[in-house]
Simulated scan of single mutants.
Amino acid sequence: MNTRFLQELEEKKILVAAHRGTYGGNVIENTYLSSIVALASGADIVEIDAVRSTDGVLYAFHDGEEERRFGITTNLRNLSSKEIENLEYLNIIGEKSGEHIWKLYDLLKALKGKGLINLDRAWDYLNEVFKIIKELQMEDQI
Rank of each mutant, 00 (worst) to 15 (best):
I93W: 04
G98K: 05
L76T: 11
W102H: 14
T74W: 12
Y89S: 00
I84E: 04
E85V: 04
N75C: 14
T74F: 09
N91A: 03
L87I: 05
L79P: 06
I101T: 13
L90C: 06
I101G: 00
I101Y: 00
L90I: 01
S80V: 07
K96N: 07
L79Q: 02
N78M: 13
E85F: 04
T74Q: 14
S97N: 00
R77W: 08
E85R: 08
Y105C: 06
E95T: 08
L108Y: 11
N91T: 10
N75I: 11
N75L: 15
D106P: 09
G98Q: 06
K82I: 12
I93K: 12
E88S: 07
K103N: 09
L108H: 10
L107A: 09
G98Y: 08
E83N: 09
S80K: 03
G94T: 08
L107W: 06
L87V: 02
G94C: 01
T74M: 12
G94Q: 03
R77N: 14
G94F: 05
L87W: 12
L87R: 01
K82S: 15
K96T: 01
E88A: 08
I84H: 02
L108D: 06
L107S: 02
I93R: 11
E88M: 10
I93H: 07
E95S: 13
L107G: 00
N75Q: 14
N78K: 14
S80P: 05
R77D: 08
L76I: 14
K82R: 15
Y89G: 01
S80I: 07
E83L: 10
K103I: 10
E95V: 07
L76D: 11
I92D: 15
S80A: 06
I84W: 00
K96D: 05
G98V: 03
L107T: 06
E83Q: 13
E83W: 07
E95L: 14
S97G: 04
L108I: 03
I101P: 08
Y105R: 12
I84D: 00
R77C: 13
L107V: 04
E88T: 14
L76Y: 05
